[in-house]
């Protein structure tokens, strides 16, 4: 059970939150090509190391926020409110 620092609530057990994966940027659906859209949908960097990811503080403040987490060690740093 890792600890995730919610920028509003402070440190919380990860079971109180929902991991939402790597932060991706949503292309403009009006203009995006299918290939751009599917890259957004499916392709992931999936690095072993620091990644910026989104979390939802489900049992706490119900806010989405981002943190940086090292996927090799589960260390976290820099949590930011959305």
């Amino acid at each position: 059970m890792i600890v995730v620092n919610c920028p509003h609530c402070g440190p919380r057990n990860s079971s109180d939150l929902r991991p939402c994966g790597e932060v991706t940027s949503r292309p403009d659906p009006a203009t995006a090509s299918l290939s751009e859209w599917r890259t957004y949908l499916y392709m992931r960097e999936n690095p072993s190391g620091w990644v910026t990811e989104a979390w939802y503080c489900r049992s706490g403040c119900r806010r989405y926020f981002t943190i940086e987490r090292n996927t090799a060690t589960n260390e976290t740093r820099r949590s930011e409110a959305s």
Partner: peptide, 18 residues
């Protein structure tokens, strides 16, 4: 589980999370 790391070395992104 390490597939993305190797594939990124070939410039082939994968629809994978570990």
């Amino acid at each position: 589980g390490w597939a993305s790391l190797i594939s990124n070395m070939a410039g082939v992104p994968l629809p994978i999370t570990t």
